[in-house]
Write a protein that binds this DNA or RNA. Structure first.
Lengths: 321, 321
DNA sequence: GAGCTACATCGTAAATGGTTACCGTCAAAT
DNA sequence: ATTTGACGGTAACCATTTACGATGTAGCTC
């Protein structure tokens, strides 16, 4: 038994001849090692748990792809759990993942609350937050700087001469895509000495339809904005279509910018100018970080902020007075 | 030990009072059952393996969501493995999934070859194919009828008076999205007595860019088609933009139809007319089928074909002579 | 009231399929 | 002959489940 274990695990303490005999027997018997027994004995499962808000959301799917690729590279498997940003469900899957003795946990989601922290603390294995972070900064995380990303987006509008800039925001309850991006918008206005006007902000739900709706509202204003900053590409695309449906043009009549750079941003007319967040890399870097933690390597900086980049395409123009 | 096991597993043979004491101890000690040991002893892991070509592809992501929801409903977890339709990698992940003692396997991919079958045969647990099938029909599967879906698509073009109908196909090596949809195109032409013309078919790679390219080719023809059938929505949207970039209009100058009905189909102008394949349901039904198989329930029809539906939106018009 | 049965409850120990610490053996080298 | 190191085997261990047996209690019969 021990010898078989050694050859299966590539332990050098076995004569090549014996190794060969074992391999032949394995072949002949159709033996397949049982990873569950192995996991019990070795206390390692070579699988990591991933909690994700919604795999059918292209942003998270792209992040997941990054996670999977790196996990695969290090021979880990992934247990994937959708949790829809519902706290109660998140806590539940964290616990079942921990019961399954995953070697590490990758958490994506919206807010991480006190209850999340409590669940995390019961964990014997490392946890990293991906595309989110905890307020206190006690857990390793990889994310972008949403506020600065939004700031940069609004700023490129301002540099193009716009001063009537509306925003289609997400809910302010959401710390990253919602609140932070909204703060970036406000700060950019402030830095340019532009007064913040409440009726130039609409709250959407990140989706296309809410972008359409929000833009309809702006189009109904007596004093219309000249540019729109949307918190997500999807809402931006909704806004574009809302404008085009009225017979108006982007960027001639309105400039549009947003944050994300989903694939669709280069599959619309006009091509969407947006601040790219490196989705694949968010996942990849988070997973890489987790592998280090699982190997108990010391990591210099466990809270990484990935750079964003504004991609100038065709939906932003100089203001048209 | 046995008693604890009984209360944890909700076995009725335990006095309420004892049960309570056990729960208190669990609470006090912070005991968390070890699913790995449980799996070893019970020979069940309550996890199923899913091999998927690419989770960042929105179609598969949507299917995966269906799988996950149903799995969750039956208290299964999902081990997700990307395999990129690469046979060698598919075989490899099938084996590691089986080593992990998954209770069942859901296979999505392109072709299922003889080697796949061999790998499947070593499995002690049920396997179902999702969005694909094996030629011999030996394995349970859930899929749509790609040929008929394509047939229906082309047919609605024909019913709108079109006779010069081009196709942007996928590779004919791919049995489902490629070959079958192409066959549907040919048969629809044939049924309408329209001659098949080789230079009205271009092969793409399912992606947006290849749709753009293919359409450029058609626009360069002396005798242009009046309608285009694309094997996927993405290519159709590429074609639409290719047309619009030339200052021409959809559907005035060209009618466009395709198969899939991805979210983006209702996020373009004009809204894309397409034959919908029920992606979420493909996943959900496949997973449901797998749960039955895992419970050793007998299932009447293990090879299910889900219905498709043509969604009339705005990219198809009556021909304009 | 003793004895018996039946049943509910609980504990014991084997089994699950590996890993690994430890020890014994053997051949080669000193 | 002794030492050394490579190699292989033994058995403990991992945390559960589960078959089976032990225990206790209540109810019943005589």
């Amino acid at each position: 038994m021990a010898t078989v274990s050694r050859v299966v695990n590539n332990n050098p303490n076995v004569k090549p001849q014996t190794r060969k005999k074992v391999f032949e027997a394995i072949e002949r018997l159709g033996y397949r090692p049982n990873a569950v027994a192995r996991g019990l004995a070795s206390k390692k499962t070579t699988t990591v748990g991933v909690v994700i808000p919604d795999i059918s959301n292209s942003i998270f799917a792209e992040i997941a792809r990054g996670i999977e690729d790196i996990a695969n590279m290090y021979h880990y498997n992934i247990i994937l759990c959708n949790a829809d940003k519902r706290k109660e469900k998140e806590i539940r899957v964290i616990n079942t993942l921990l019961e399954k003795q995953v070697d590490g946990l990758l958490f994506m989601g919206g807010t991480v609350t006190e209850e999340h922290i409590q669940a995390f603390q019961t964990s014997a294995v490392p946890i990293v937050l991906c595309a989110t972070r905890d307020e206190k900064g006690t857990y390793p995380s990889v994310d972008i700087d949403h506020e600065t990303a939004a700031f940069d987006a609004v700023n490129t509008l301002i540099r193009h001469g716009h001063r009537e800039i509306a925003m289609i925001s997400g809910t302010l309850q959401d710390p990253a895509n919602g609140y932070a991006r909204f703060q970036g918008y406000k700060k950019a206005l402030e830095a340019a000495g532009i007064e913040y006007q409440e009726d130039l902000v609409r709250i959407g739900n990140y989706r296309y339809e809410s972008g359409v709706e929000a833009m309809k509202y702006f189009l109904g204003l007596k004093k219309k904005p000249t540019a729109i900053f949307a918190a997500t590409d999807e809402m931006a695309i909704g806004a574009i279509h809302s404008i085009q449906d009225e017979g108006l043009k982007v960027p001639d009549d309105f400039s549009i910018i947003s944050v994300d750079n989903i694939r669709m941003a280069s599959m619309v007319r006009p091509l969407l100018t947006t601040v790219a967040q490196p989705m694949y890399d968010l996942g990849a870097v988070a997973m890489r970080l987790l592998t280090k933690l699982m190997k108990k390597e010391t990591v210099e900086n466990p809270r990484v902020i990935l750079p964003h980049e504004t991609i100038l395409r065709l939906s932003v123009n100089h203001v048209n007075k």
